[in-house]
């Protein structure tokens, strides 16, 4: 998997999936929902985030509703990776299922908004090119890597079905 490189968008603790994918836009197309992603916390986020940018958060990122649109909205906006002190369990699974690397990053608090980060999700290496700090974190677990590298659960299921039918 290639390196992810972009600016850091920094969020606090307990950012829930309702604010990533608000219920008011549930029936709207993803492009519309993504425009409102995280707006209750940072109204400038959706308009200004760029492909490859990295979301950095505190504890329990993605707590709450199982809505997969939370991970999809971040994907839609081009977010390259999500780094958090800890994750809500369904969001963490959803992110990987969509091929969006999610890494537990205990030192997330050292990142300042706008820092440039370089992330290797397999090796578990996070480099802050502003401060020069290099952090070693747990890479994505081996049993999940096959799926993430395949591009997520759907491509992985396709591979599996093809093998079964072969």
């Amino acid at each position: 998997m290639k390196l992810i490189e972009g600016r850091a968008w920094v969020f606090g603790d307990d950012v829930n999936t309702d604010v990533m994918a608000p219920g008011l836009y549930f029936k709207s197309p993803m492009a519309e929902m993504a425009r409102h992603c995280l707006e209750a916390i940072d109204p400038s986020f959706a308009a200004n985030v760029r492909p490859g940018d990295v979301v950095v958060a505190g504890r329990n990122f993605g707590v709450g509703s199982a809505r997969e649109q939370a991970a999809m909205a971040l994907n839609h906006l081009g977010v390259g990776a999500v780094l958090a002190v800890s994750f809500g369990r369904i969001f963490y699974r959803n992110a990987l299922n969509f091929g969006l690397p999610a890494l537990v990053f205990p030192a997330a608090g050292t990142v300042v908004a706008g820092d440039r980060l370089r992330v290797d999700p397999v090796a578990g290496r996070i480099e802050n090119t502003r401060s020069g700090a290099v952090h070693a974190v747990n890479g994505i677990p081996a049993h999940l890597m096959a799926m993430v590298e395949a591009g997520g659960l759907m491509p992985w299921l396709k591979l599996r079905l093809r093998k079964e039918n072969a």
Partner: peptide
């Protein structure tokens, strides 16, 4: 759905997952 945990009141293990995993 995240509140699938409700079923655990019956002494079973029931947990919630995202739609993509429910596809799996």
């Amino acid at each position: 759905d995240s509140h699938s945990s409700m079923g655990g009141a019956f002494g079973c293990f029931m947990a919630g997952f995202g739609a993509i995993e429910m596809t799996g």
